[in-house]
Amino acid sequence: MADHADQPLRSAFSDDPEMQHLLQLFVEELPQHIDELCEALNDESLDDAQRIAHQLKGAGAGYGFAPISEAASDLEAALTASVAEANAIRQALDALVDCCTRVIA
């Protein structure tokens, strides 16, 4: 991932004119999801965090952003690990946030 760290992340569907509007909505709402996610983690409400990660994992690839799904999946795995490790969670969150900030519609 380090190789692409500065590359903008485009949807696999970015050439699909029908998808333009949906992609825009998705990208506009991403920061809100990330805020909710961080908030949930700060409050240590792991269930909420898990739910949001799960939804991002589902929606990400559906909108042609496979890296978001992968990062969200890693975070979900870290959150559901039998022994939650703060470090692993932090790393997975950072990777997901990094991914989301590079997204363009």
Binding site: E18, L22, E29, Q55, A59, G62, Y63
Partner: peptide, 13 residues
């Protein structure tokens, strides 16, 4: 039946 609005929009289209 899915709590994520993104999935609804996508599938609907």
């Amino acid at each position: 039946i899915d709590p994520a609005p993104e999935v609804h929009r996508m599938l609907s289209m």
